[in-house]
Each structure stands twice: as C-alpha cells, then as structure tokens.
Amino acid sequence: MSGYILFSSEMRAVIKAQHPDYSFGELSRLVGTEWRNLETAKKAEYEERAAKVAEQQERERA
C-alpha cells in the first residue's frame, strides 16, 4: 500500500460526501490535485502509515 492510496481512500469519502453528484473521474482528479498540493510532511505521514499497514498485512498473511 502506498501513501497515496491511503490518502485517496480517505479523501475520496470526504469529497464524495461534499459532492455526491461528482463522477468517479471528477473525484479522482480532485484527489490527485489535493495530493499534489499536500505538504511534504503530510505526505510523509501517509507514507509511514501505509508502510505500517503493509507490514501488518504481511504479518497476517504469514
């Protein structure tokens, strides 16, 4: 899992709640824009969280 995927899943729900009429493409475009504009430190937080999720998933598969 990547930081972007984690961010995307969280942001998509927020944007969808604010704009229920937006298409999947419109939501994706907005999520991508939000990610590109996100501060580097915040991106790093998402990357760290994603790494922890990936480690947990790997342990569960073992």
Rank of each mutant, 00 (worst) to 15 (best):
M1S: 13
M1K: 08
M1P: 04
S2R: 10
S2L: 07
S2H: 05
S2E: 06
S2Q: 07
G3N: 02
G3W: 00
Y4D: 04
Y4M: 05
Y4I: 05
Y4Q: 04
Y4E: 12
Y4H: 05
I5H: 15
I5F: 07
I5Y: 14
I5W: 08
L6G: 02
L6D: 03
L6W: 02
F7C: 01
F7L: 00
F7I: 00
S9E: 15
S9D: 13
S9R: 15
S9G: 06
S9I: 06
S9T: 13
S9N: 14
S9F: 04
E10L: 00
E10W: 01
E10Q: 05
M11D: 00
M11L: 09
M11P: 00
M11S: 03
M11C: 04
R12D: 05
R12A: 07
A13K: 14
A13R: 12
A13T: 10
V14T: 11
V14Q: 11
V14S: 13
I15S: 03
I15V: 09
K16S: 11
K16C: 06
K16D: 03
K16I: 05
K16N: 07
A17I: 04
A17Y: 04
A17D: 08
A17M: 09
Q18H: 12
Q18F: 00
Q18M: 07
H19F: 03
H19S: 04
P20T: 03
P20C: 02
P20W: 00
P20F: 00
P20L: 02
D21V: 04
D21C: 07
D21P: 02
D21M: 03
Y22D: 04
Y22C: 15
S23E: 08
S23R: 04
S23Y: 01
S23T: 10
S23I: 02
S23P: 08
F24G: 15
F24E: 15
F24K: 14
E26C: 03
E26D: 06
S28P: 02
S28Q: 10
S28F: 03
R29D: 14
R29H: 08
R29E: 14
L30G: 06
L30Y: 06
V31M: 11
G32K: 15
G32F: 11
G32A: 15
T33I: 14
T33M: 15
E34T: 09
E34P: 00
R36T: 11
R36I: 08
N37F: 03
N37T: 07
L38I: 04
E39M: 03
T40P: 15
T40A: 12
A41H: 11
A41M: 08
A41D: 11
A41Y: 08
A41K: 13
A41R: 10
A41W: 09
K42V: 07
K42Y: 02
K42D: 04
K42F: 01
K42W: 00
K42E: 07
K42P: 00
K42I: 05
K42L: 04
K43Q: 09
K43L: 01
K43I: 04
K43Y: 00
A44N: 11
A44C: 10
A44I: 06
A44H: 10
E45Q: 09
E45V: 08
E45F: 04
Y46T: 01
Y46D: 02
Y46N: 01
E47P: 00
E47D: 08
E47Q: 08
E48Q: 12
E48D: 08
E48R: 13
E48W: 06
E48G: 07
R49Y: 02
R49L: 04
R49C: 02
R49G: 01
A50F: 02
A50E: 02
A50W: 04
A51W: 05
A51I: 08
A51G: 08
K52P: 01
K52C: 07
V53H: 11
V53A: 06
V53Y: 09
V53P: 05
V53F: 15
A54P: 06
A54K: 08
A54D: 06
A54H: 11
E55R: 13
E55G: 07
E55I: 11
Q56D: 14
Q56V: 13
Q56I: 10
Q56S: 13
Q57D: 11
Q57C: 10
Q57S: 10
Q57G: 11
E58S: 10
E58F: 07
E60W: 06
R61Y: 07
R61F: 08
R61S: 14
R61Q: 13
R61N: 13
A62T: 11
A62E: 14
A62H: 04
A62L: 11
